[in-house]
Design a protein around this nucleic acid. Sequence first.
DNA 1: CGATTTTTTGAATCATATCAACGTACGTGG
DNA 2: CCACGTACGTTGATATGATTCAAAAAATCG
Lengths: 192, 192
Amino acid sequence: MYELFFRKFNEKISLTEEEETLVKQYLTPKKLRKKQYLLQEGDICKSIAFVEKGALRAYSVDEKGNEHIIQFGLEGWLISDLYSFLSNEPATYNIDAIEDAELVLISKSAHEELLRKLPKYETFTRLNITGAYLAMQKRLTSIISSTLEERYMGFINLYPNIVQRVPQHMIASYMGLTPETLSRVRQKMIRK
Amino acid sequence: MYELFFRKFNEKISLTEEEETLVKQYLTPKKLRKKQYLLQEGDICKSIAFVEKGALRAYSVDEKGNEHIIQFGLEGWLISDLYSFLSNEPATYNIDAIEDAELVLISKSAHEELLRKLPKYETFTRLNITGAYLAMQKRLTSIISSTLEERYMGFINLYPNIVQRVPQHMIASYMGLTPETLSRVRQKMIRK
DNA sequence: CGATTTTTTGAATCATATCAACGTACGTGG
DNA sequence: CCACGTACGTTGATATGATTCAAAAAATCG
């Protein structure tokens, strides 16, 4: 249980047996079936989810009813509405499962106690958010300075497995495109 | 000296006198005249800069020679090429001064030692990067789901002073638009 | 197998970029 | 302190590329 979670944790800063045992007490497992929600817009995000298995997505819905995926969560990643989690404001994102998933939840109180009790948990958190920040910065840079083909190439390079696992229209949504446009971009690339 | 820096630091976690004195030993002041570089693409980013006064920008230049601003740095903000700083890889961004500026530099070794010696510095770092992450997520969300007018409105709401201080074409660049397009967006909004 | 979802294709439309020209403001050296 | 040169912002005409809407084809699921 929690194998991947602790693997990733130890990659960042290694824990002793006792520390692992301590951390374990603050974790809650959760399974989600495909299409089930972890969080709905308007609710308060009560926990950060680490993905042990499966795939989730975080997305917002605009007035026209279009979905905009702002983040995928695959094995080994964290997913949440961080702003809602930290501020206790209603979530602006929905999170649901794209595939059946197994999660490790860290509740707000668990998060806060771990930060207080275990300095290594703060380091873990800092490194996680730093990684997420750098990844998002790359994404933003590519949006404002690359062509669609380059962006799609960059995406499949960064997440080679994801293409097989998530429907194309969700990748389009993540890229801020219509499904039709992404389909045409792919045609053009295949022809080369 | 370093007033704003310690004001911001104390807002996040308050320091004792001794702790402030300790931190001060790791800081270096630096002044920059308008148009001077703090960092050039290809160099390794040796320090994180806190802006005490003035304004900077971080931007990349594409093959066509177009500049893409990925971040502004105003009073009270941090600016750097974080990826280069953390990895010691050559920077992909340029950073220069839009106005004469006064900076507080934290070198790589200072950063590492402070992380080791002073837990509150790690907390400071964690909270900074978290804030930067949330701000960037908002920016990304607005790019993939809002109209240009909404995005410009959002921008001037978030940074009301910036409009007077930085040239419009830089705001266009930050938004991923041509100067002409931003000019037209503004005309349309003024007419209402 | 039938039903639903996903992807593709086509044509028309809309938004933004591009290129070029012009007016204005700014600051810099004489 | 003025005049000139450079940078900045605006405007117009045209081109490009993405969206929209509609429909068909393909894939997936029960």
